[in-house]
Design a protein around this nucleic acid. Sequence first.
DNA 1: TTGAAAGCGATACCAG
DNA 2: CTGGTATCGCTTTCAA
Lengths: 337, 337
Amino acid sequence: MKVTLKDVADAANLSVASVSRILTNRGRYSEVTAKRVRELAQKMGYYKNQNAADLSSKKSRAVGVVVPLIHTNFADEVIKGLYEATISSGYELLITYLDENEDHQYQVFQTLLSRQVGAVFMLSLDIPSWMVNTLLEEKISVISLTALLNDQVSAVTSDESEMMNTIIDYLVTMGHKNIALIGDTKLTTIISNTRRTNFIKLMHAHGLTDDNMFLYGTDHTYETGYNSVTTDYDINHLPFTAAVATADLVGQGLANAMLDHGKKVPDDLSIVTIDGLQQTEIARPKLTTIQQNFPEIGRVAMQLFLNSDSSNKDPQVIYIPTELIQRDSVLNLNAKI
Amino acid sequence: MKVTLKDVADAANLSVASVSRILTNRGRYSEVTAKRVRELAQKMGYYKNQNAADLSSKKSRAVGVVVPLIHTNFADEVIKGLYEATISSGYELLITYLDENEDHQYQVFQTLLSRQVGAVFMLSLDIPSWMVNTLLEEKISVISLTALLNDQVSAVTSDESEMMNTIIDYLVTMGHKNIALIGDTKLTTIISNTRRTNFIKLMHAHGLTDDNMFLYGTDHTYETGYNSVTTDYDINHLPFTAAVATADLVGQGLANAMLDHGKKVPDDLSIVTIDGLQQTEIARPKLTTIQQNFPEIGRVAMQLFLNSDSSNKDPQVIYIPTELIQRDSVLNLNAKI
DNA sequence: TTGAAAGCGATACCAG
DNA sequence: CTGGTATCGCTTTCAA
């Protein structure tokens, strides 16, 4: 049978109350007995039943993380950041995956609620809004990572507009005019819509017209990148000289498609990817990218939550700086003779 | 305030006992009232406090998953399998990450224990043995994934010996004699040691001697692959014609190092990687690999656990088939004129 | 079929 | 500084 608080108390000839106080470092007790109790607990192999503790104290040190089952592995980076912040604060991470199935979503959501998590970190993509609303009603902090959900939830993310601006600015400086946005450009999810909108807006801001813009794809996959130039556009007469990939993998697909068809990157097509994971460095040619600081996003998000009880309660948005990393996938058209 | 069982019971003019029975589909009750209660609970926004439920019933539907913080992303694949099996069985996954820090390990371990998990799935690599032992003492099933830990714990994994045999067999058939094992070849962890030992044993079994073998590296990183041929060996006079990479990333590093130095793959070096994730298909040249079925490992592991109460209790080892996928990174020496 | 009541293991308030 | 005890929300006999 499992060792309980009472067992330790009996063995120590103390009350459960005292032992509890000692083991949680709360309230008053003498260091002498405390030492004795701690050793005893250790020796007896006692460990707290967190379920009971949470039930009794009506709080929980657990926070939930919702990760899309199909993610572009930037999730791992974010989780690393969360892990760091979490482990040093004594909180515990309840990571749940989410697919597109409604029933499953409901189940996951139930899990989170029924475990009394204090906060839920939503990792990008299409989190059902009924889920967010219910969480909010239950006074559970919802923090959106790598995406702005709506103005009721806090978010820690890269500045999408700035990112896109940096990219287009760079591309235009390099002499590009006809530019494509490839990857997830659909209108139905918040993040893809944001990117699409920003792309169009910023192209205009750079004096480019609709004729200079090209949009392709509805997801962040390798295949989308690959197929864009092999099926939808004529690879021998691409109407654009540069492409912005909404994820590293998309850019990789783009690059491979070119290579596989005897074309060269960046000579025949310049590519800039969004994300900047290890992959972009491993690719040949190395991919120019705007790198998001995912671990930092995780770390900051956790801190935001930890500090939230004390100070204000209003939803906040924190932007984590991104960095343009110039590598070998963008051609300088101006240098061309 | 949160809606509790009692609230629902009051609203329904029933006792908590009855409502509990209905909501958990246990015991006897009339379908008529059941329907009423279920609707009421739904409308009131009731959801079970799983902590209280677990505490009361002294069991838990949660299982833990321990993932090395630095993983070769095959972990995601395994988790997908686990998730599938878990979501359809009503269990809940408690995913925890683990780094090398002893204190953190202890903390993670505490989390798992204190949440009363029914089983812990250990994802490869160096899981501290004190952790395993304590878990076992607490009668918590420990199932090792993608690695054999010891004969006290069940395991679901690929057949390491068979994998290595397939690779060497293939390489020898293609005319290779001098072969290197590159990646994690250290003696101190179970999995790397297994691979190292199998490599040597199977090289011998193929009539090759120690002079034909080369070992390099102590981890599964890209850098290890890259550095092996650029620093430790003379890239212009490699003593081996083929290399077995202990992970895809290692193979990728190897390939890039060759490419970056004007060498060709497979002409100047043949490469076979172990794992076979998407990466090997994206690489150029595409990497020949022995592919492990990670999602299946996850699925089977969960099923193993689910069926374990009913039948026997002995530790079992289940091997999930692997597949050699021939792509473009191995040269056929025999075909050479 | 339904209800009363005894826990589950820990916390925290209130006395002593 | 220490102990008694109500309580957290739910499950589970045992009676009714």
